[in-house]
Design a protein around this nucleic acid. Structure first.
Length: 591
RNA sequence: GGACCGGUAGUUCAAUCGGUUAGAGCGCCAGCCUGUCACGCUGGAAGUUGCGAGUUCGAGUCUCGUCCGGUCCGCCA
């Protein structure tokens, strides 16, 4: 069909007879002759139609953009001034001798530009057109290269790729499941996996001591710019190893990606930081180390401030923390500070105290309570000096972390404080084992219920609030790109953790009996992790939008404007599945 | 579940304080053009202003509702 792609002809091919096929990117009809840019995913080549062949020239002039054609012709080196330095094929053009229209294109619903000019819903509805644009196609090329690098690396390290079921049992912990009704078992449902967690642990019991899988996972939760209902994990598990072994493998994967994709050597091992330290210094469990501003601890100064909010924080065991933005006092007008307060309330806080230290002195709304002396001493202790903007927040530890952690990033982004020259990776370790679930009034697993608690603490009977886990997250540029843990492999310990989670023996047997049973027959100590592959591609592809790195993504409301899913089904199908719909049925899909 | 932003020719946008026939670029159609590469020039067609109510002499513009897209909070072990 074709002898070359549209991206490979060079000056050295001068004189060759070639067959090219592709899409008409653009036609430039000069009257006496005409130029045509022929495009495929490999590149673009200029085709010339000359007056010697009037019939061909006329046919070329009639072509529509995005029609698919095949041409036969002769490669010709372009005259010096006519070369196009912007194109890899720019030294040559193909003089057409034959033209075949393979598929005529109608006028497109939007024009294919370099920039994202068309609205996102149109581009999603005609995703196959959006993907013709090289700027979009490049994300899928990148994704492919990264997937290959991961497979090659893990294969070389002795990992076995095993596929696990997509239809599985619904489990109580964690995200909302996508459910699939069973035809054969009336009233019963499969769940789509939120991750292959239990299967990979069972593979360890089965003796496959090094497993991996690049696998789709599903969570029926609301979407975000970095969250889709179906997404891909690089899932890894190994036996007879601990945190260090898993982290070493994950680091090897990252090093391979840096090498293959960016041509850079990643310096290993990556730094480690405890969860507590990350929260104290950055206010989040996934610190962006590219921002050179840290939270300052001023807890001991809260009592004695004479400002009721701070005093209250001190009295109730809360904290007083600060962010110091060097030299930004002058840039923060009343309006910008108000915007920051709005943002704080949006995050669920009551507000923060913004202090500007200018040439005229210290400007803050709480002077009248604290007095000049307390304020200046506090600012100095926080490391501030004249010209700085200081944000103070007091109260519950988690809330203060959330407010200052987010403000740190927001101000850094708005004022160009993010040092983007190089990526910053680190491991965050020693996470809390449990988090208190206010709604359900019980302790919930911070990672998942198979995570091994810190053994010393566990044996000493430390309270759930204090207990740390053997979980770890890999963080890159402020994003969690992988998370994992050393798993529980002892039946007794697993039973105790279930108890701490308020899961009864019966419930544990009902939901996880197969795993507990498996542990009775010889279980190797094991540990693992899973990468969020989509987010990884986002970072390497330098996009903020997860839809960019997925071939056919869903909208914010988990629908696909392209194929109209989800949509209603025939009554007959419902009957087969023993289902009836409560309330009115939709007449058509959401798109 | 909540907050905010957006929706006007095929498309991207404009339309002053609510006021005459809703404009422009790209695309499309017709014609011209021998070195373009976002070719150029001339002319033309193209609109349920997302949808539904309301206010008004008069609504693209104001109000309410609703649908769709996006960002964020909650949620996401």
């Amino acid at each position: 069909m074709r002898s070359h792609t549209c991206g490979e002809l060079r000056g050295s091919d001068d004189g060759a007879r070639v067959l090219l096929a592709g899409w008409v990117n653009r036609v430039r009809n000069m009257g006496g002759f005409c130029f045509l840019d022929l495009r495929d995913r490999h590149g673009m080549t200029q085709v010339v139609f000359e007056p010697e062949n009037a019939e061909l020239l006329e046919a070329a002039g009639r072509l529509h953009m995005e029609s698919v054609i095949r041409i036969q012709g002769v490669v010709r080196r372009r005259p010096g001034a006519m070369t196009n330095a912007e194109l890899p094929t720019g030294e040559v053009e193909v003089v057409a001798t034959e033209l075949e229209l393979l598929s005529r294109a109608e006028v497109l619903p939007f024009t294919l530009e370099v920039e994202d000019t068309a609205s996102e819903d149109l581009r999603l509805k005609y995703r196959y057109l959006d993907l013709r644009r090289p700027v979009k196609a490049r994300y899928l090329h990148l994704r492919h290269r990264m997937a290959q690098a991961v497979r090659r690396t893990l294969d070389n390290l002795g990992f076995l790729e095993v596929e696990t079921p997509v239809l599985m049992k619904s489990t109580p912990e964690g995200a909302r499941d996508y459910l699939v009704p069973s035809r054969i078992h009336p009233g019963s449902f499969y769940a789509l996996p939120q991750s292959p967690q239990t299967y990979k642990q069972l593979l360890m019991v089965a003796g496959f001591d090094r497993y991996f899988q690049i696998v789709k996972c599903f969570r029926d939760e609301d979407l975000r710019s970095d969250r889709q209902p179906e997404f891909t994990q690089i899932d890894i598990e190994l036996s007879f190893g601990d945190e260090g072994d898993v982290q070493g493998v994950a680091e090897a994967v990252m090093a391979a990606l840096f090498h293959d994709v960016k041509g850079e050597e990643l310096s290993l091992p990556l730094p480690r930081m405890t969860w507590r330290e990350a929260m104290d210094r950055y206010g989040v469990d996934k610190p962006d180390l590219r921002v050179p501003v840290e939270i300052q601890r001023l807890d001991h100064r809260a009592a004695g401030s004479a400002f009721s909010v701070f005093e209250q924080a001190a009295a109730s065991g809360g904290v007083l923390r600060a962010l110091v933005f060097k030299g930004l006092a002058a840039e923060f007008s009343r309006k910008k500070i108000d915007a920051l307060q709005d943002y704080t309330r949006h995050l669920g806080g009551q507000g923060v105290v913004a202090v500007r230290w200018t040439e005229e002195g210290i400007n803050s709304p709480i002077h009248k309570f604290t007095g000049e002396e307390w304020m200046e001493a506090t600012l100095v202790e926080a490391g501030a000096s004249q010209g700085d903007l200081v944000i103070l927040a007091a109260g519950d530890f988690r809330l203060v972390c959330k407010l200052l952690g987010n403000i740190r990033l927001r101000v850094a982004r708005e004022h160009g404080l993010v040092q983007t020259e190089r990526h910053r990776l680190l491991w965050v370790t020693d996470f809390p084992m449990f988090e208190y679930d206010e709604e359900e009034d019980r302790w919930a697993a911070a990672h998942h219920p198979f995570t091994q608690p810190n053994r010393e603490q566990f044996e000493a009977g430390v309270s759930p609030a204090e207990l740390l886990s053997r979980g770890y997250d890999l963080v890159m540029d402020g994003q969690e790109i992988a998370g994992g843990s050393v798993r529980i492999h002892e039946r007794d310990m697993q039973a105790k953790v279930f108890t701490m989670l308020g899961i009864s023996d019966e419930e544990a047997r009902e939901k996880f009996g197969f795993l507990l049973d498996a542990f009775r027959y010889g279980t190797p100590p094991h540990a693992g992790c899973a990468f969020g592959f989509d987010r990884l591609v986002m970072i390497f592809g330098e996009t903020e939008n997860i839809r960019d790195v997925i071939a056919f993504p869903k909208t914010n409301r988990a629908a696909s404007p392209m194929d109209g899913c989800p949509g209603p089904v025939d009554e007959r199908q419902l009957t087969e599945l023993h289902l009836s719909i409560r309330g009115a049925r939709p007449e058509s899909g959401p798109a």
